[in-house]
Design a protein around this nucleic acid. Sequence first.
RNA 1: GCCGCAUUCGUCUAGCGGCCUAGGACACCGCCCUCUCAAGGCGGAGAUCGGGGGUUCGAAUCCCCCAUGCGGUACCA
Length: 491
Amino acid sequence: MAQEVRVRFAPSPTGYFHLGGARTALYNWLFARHNGGKFILRIEDTDRTRYHPDAVPFLLESLRWLGCMWDEGPEVGGSCGPYYQSDRIALYQQYAEQLIAEGKAYRCYCSSERLAALREQQHAQGVKPGYDRHCRHLTRQQIADYEAAGVAPVVRLAIPLEGETAFEDRLRGRIVVNNSELDDLVLLKSDGFPTYHLGVVVDDHLMGVTHILRGDEWLASAPKHQLLYDAFGWQMPEHVHLPTILDPSGKGKLSKRRQRGPGQEDQLTFIHEFRQAGYLPEAMVNFLALVGWSYDSETEFFTRDKLIRYFDLDRVSKSPSAFSYDKLQHMNAVYIRNLGDNDLTNRLLPILRAAGFKADFGRVLAFAPLIKERLRLLGDAVDMLRFALVDSLEYPTEDLVPRKLDAATAREILARTRTVLAALPSFQHAVTEAALRELADGMGLKLRDALGSTRVAITGAAVSPPLFESMEILGRECVLARLDEAIARLG
RNA sequence: GCCGCAUUCGUCUAGCGGCCUAGGACACCGCCCUCUCAAGGCGGAGAUCGGGGGUUCGAAUCCCCCAUGCGGUACCA
């Protein structure tokens, strides 16, 4: 039987969890589920200067929200822990020692000043930048001197001076680089922490990772990793470098930071922001899956189960793709439309309450079918339902007078509307609609024109959910009161 | 600079030698429906497949060169 598939998502806690990370996590998760394997979460917190304390909580929360539960990792544990690299320091040091002992790595005592000067000089001379291997062949005496001076060394991998290194990328095929292009990369920093390169190789091996799906910014360092695997005598897992996600114009990389040009709307990039804005996790997952992967020429909507069933590395794209907020919104709107009324209401309530409304379930539920097909984001409901959740409306009085009418006419319409509605035997929308149609006819007005003032009077806006249904839910008392208020304002 | 990767409508994509006068989706435009706004229906515009050479009876699909974009070139991941 084939080896169990084990994949991992290994973010660095340096900032909030963003789109690119989410896509990578999702692909790993889908791949694991598709193959009945394990999805491991590992925190690569080896950079103490860039560490951000909020990062991990936001990450875990977002992953859970997206439904990408990890089988091993923080909070759930597992047999290959610990899952924070900062808790595995001794391990990396031990492996670094081993390579030194075998002559495959060496201690480097060069100061960062010297390295900076070296780079500057190389730049000025127009030669290829890189470490000059100053410490690769130090004498016993030189080493003793450095040690005596208390210089804290780094550990560097001794890259073969000649030959080439090749590895296989699942998507791009065989990639070969000349070893002369490769630097003696740092494995262990002078503070004793591993660099990404050492940490990732040691952990992926120790954790039994079989496939590495990661962003293609790593493609260039894969040959170095191959050399590291070779140095340890380990087999390198299969690599899949996922294409970059570009900004909506398709011209630049999607910034992790807020990118906002003149006249441009805010572009969300952090997962918790999408959640706050009212995106559904199922829409998010569906859409994210399609950024760099496709099933066929037409299918775009997939349930989670279908995604798991269909996800296939062979259909992952090689080229970068722009992130289309328009399309995400469209997809979100479709998902919202397909929600049951109860479900939608439950998702709306926390948002409405957060916006300051004392929204009760029954009222929101009643409006759910009315607003469902008008929402693109759950958050749209805040403005859409304001009139239904608030005691008194706020709107400029002049809004009561539609463009083609004058104030006196508007007032007359409102007054007659009030009279008609007050006299009706029932307030069901079919009844009120019939009555107001008749009224409009009698006044020689089109319904749409006759309703203009009334809509503003009842909802405070010229655009609203269907008026008659809304009035039925609000109830006669509320409707008449609002009409009175409007009439008074025009009087 | 050097190394690597990528290149089909504005955007996401289908396409893996003939089914392509290149299909679908978002966005856009028009019409219909309509109490506003949506939703929905119908239709439209939009890609000489980055450019140039080959290979082949035949290329978006295979090969080479160029251009452009992106990534890497850290004691950051």
